[in-house]
Nucleic acid binder design. Structure first.
Length: 491
RNA sequence: GGCGCUAUCGUCUAGGGGUUAGGACGGAAGAUUCUCAAUCUUCAAACCCGGGUUCGAUUCCCGGUAGCGCUACCA
């Protein structure tokens, strides 16, 4: 079997090849993004390939999670494949390697889960590489089970090498590479074989993947060569690790490593992408906030660094916001503020409705500018705009109504006065401003002392958007009835 | 155990034989506004250790240490 050799200067073809054994991991998402950026930057093709050869561990839920996550990122891809539909190719490739003498049957039964630590370097099972073809064929014909192993050319060749676009020239002695499996004893291809056979067949020109594959790459180079294909350009990415330095894993770190967690918490995909890009890569200038097109324009393999990057999340946090890397949250707020009011409003609406609150697009559009600078995640709309969204204000401590350097009597006086004035004031920013400031002067108090009780009466808390805009959006009726209730509460 | 990769503020990073080692997040302080937020200003905060090369290393080389990855039919 032969594989086409990509000609020099042809369009780059990259692939993202997740194995559906869990949800879409943030590390995988970054790998996807880097591949996508490379493809877009160089007018290449992005291939999505599900590496689902491990039937034992693959789940439908995982496939869905991966597509959910990728769909949310909104980057897209050009071609899509499923490795499980390409078994014939993999097996043909394995046997082609066998026929060329680069592989042999290993009849040694697979090791059971042994606890003992391996001592020294294991290279092959004794007796197996030397088995004659005749003997090998005879035992196979007799129905004996075997794995197909690559015959690493340790005597004819000193080293295997490749140039990594990130880690530079890599060399390994063949004496340190073990005879790895190509086919399992059930005839199914291993990851190494399936991956390389597919990469060769799909004419992948650049393999951009996690650094955990760096030391597997020698095996891959060997497979490509045995297949008669040119090894692609490799670029390994530093790993994303948890604050404790260990590899991110669901078991250890929980849902924080899943892309959908960020989506559900109200991250903007463009902010999440921006954040992930800054982990292990930098544009080399001082820019931090980068949009999709800016990333495409700035991206290069040379900008990738080699040390692992910590995703600085917290496992125990008081608020959901605090669980995420603070820089991710900050970047999200930056992207949020860069959105037009219309755009932001449209993204906020489903969040509000998803929480079971019914709001019209018009009302949302009016609320949005008031909370735009006060939210960091889309979900924050529920706490930042609660008093706009709820019919009835939840109960609050009447003591909150008392202004600075004042008492309950002053609060009552302010509110009673405000009720009277607001009833006959036009609910526009300018009119409210003039009326309430004049009232403060009239009562001989500071504007802040005037505004505070009204704010609490209307919003149910001290921290809220500017008063006049708030009153305007809330409308006269709601404001007056809330002030009324507050006066009652003061007793 | 073997093989490999990596090492700059708490975190993400820039830089690179001579620099006040830069930026960002987060933290602290202040300014500003009707509160909050946003914004602005200021401050604290780093070159893992040891040797070598050199007039001079945080930067280059070697060693150590630490972390991480791979390690016999997971991907």
């Amino acid at each position: 079997m032969t594989f086409p050799t990509p000609s020099a200067g042809s369009v780059p073809r990259v692939r993202f090849a997740p194995s559906p054994t869990g949800f879409l991991h943030v590390g995988s998402a970054r790998t996807f993004i880097f591949n996508w950026l490379y493809a877009r930057r160089n007018r290449g093709t992005m291939v999505l390939r599900l590496d689902d050869t491990d039937v034992e561990r693959n789940t439908e839920a995982s496939v869905n999670s991966i597509f959910d996550g990728l769909k949310w990122l909104g980057l897209g891809w050009d071609e899509e494949y499923k490795q499980s539909e390409r078994l014939e190719l993999h097996q043909k490739a394995a046997w082609a390697i066998f026929e060329k003498g680069f592989a042999y049957r290993d009849f040694t039964p697979p090791r059971e889960g042994e606890n003992e630590k391996p001592q020294g370097t294991w290279l092959f099972n004794p007796g197996m590489p030397e088995l004659s073809r005749v003997e090998s064929d005879r035992r196979a014909a007799a129905g004996e089970r075997f794995a197909l192993r690559f015959r690493v050319p340790r005597t004819s060749r000193e080293t295997v090498q490749f140039a990594d676009a990130v880690y530079g020239e890599q060399v390994k002695a063949t004496a340190d590479i073990e005879d790895f499996a190509l086919l399992r004893s059930d005839g199914m291809p291993t990851y190494h074989l399936a991956s390389c056979a597919d990469d060769a067949d799909l004419q992948i020109s650049h393999i951009i993947r996690g650094q955990d594959h760096l030391s597997n790459t020698y095996k891959h180079v060997l497979i490509f060569e045995a297949l008669g294909a040119m090894p692609p350009q490799f670029a390994h990415l530093p790993l994303l690790v948890a604050p404790d330095g260990t590899k991110l894993s669901k078991r250890r770190h929980g849902p924080i490593v899943s892309v959908t967690t960020y989506r559900d918490a109200g991250f903007l995909p463009e902010a999440f992408i921006n954040f992930l890009c800054l982990l292990g890569w930098s544009p080399k200038d001082d820019r931090e906030k980068l949009g999709r097109e800016e990333l495409v324009a700035a991206f290069s393999l040379e900008g990738i660094n080699r040390a692992n990057a910590v995703v600085n999340f917290k496992e125990v946090a008081a608020t959901p916001e605090e669980t995420f890397d603070p820089k991710a949250v900050w970047l999200n707020a930056e992207h949020l503020r860069a959105l037009s009011v219309e755009d932001l409003s449209a993204r906020l609406l489903p969040v509000v409705r998803g929480a079971g609150l019914d709001t019209s697009p018009e009302k949302m559009l009016a609320i949005t500018p008031l909370i735009r600078e006060r939210i960091k995640l889309l979900r924050d709309v529920l706490t930042a705009a609660d008093f706009f969204l709820a019919e009835q204000l939840p109960p609050f401590d009447p003591a909150e109504l008392i202004p600075q350097k004042g008492d309950a009597a002053l609060a009552r006086k302010v509110l009673t006065h405000a009720r009277e004035l607001l009833a006959k004031t036009e609910f526009t920013h300018a009119a409210l401003d003039a009326t309430l400031r004049a009232a403060a002067q009239e009562l001989g108090i500071k504007p802040g002392q005037m505004f505070q009780p009204i704010r609490v009466a209307v919003c149910g808390r001290k921290n809220a958007p500017p008063l006049f805009e708030t009153l305007e959006v809330l409308g006269k009726q709601a404001c007056l009835s809330r002030i009324e209730q507050a006066i009652e509460r003061l007793g």
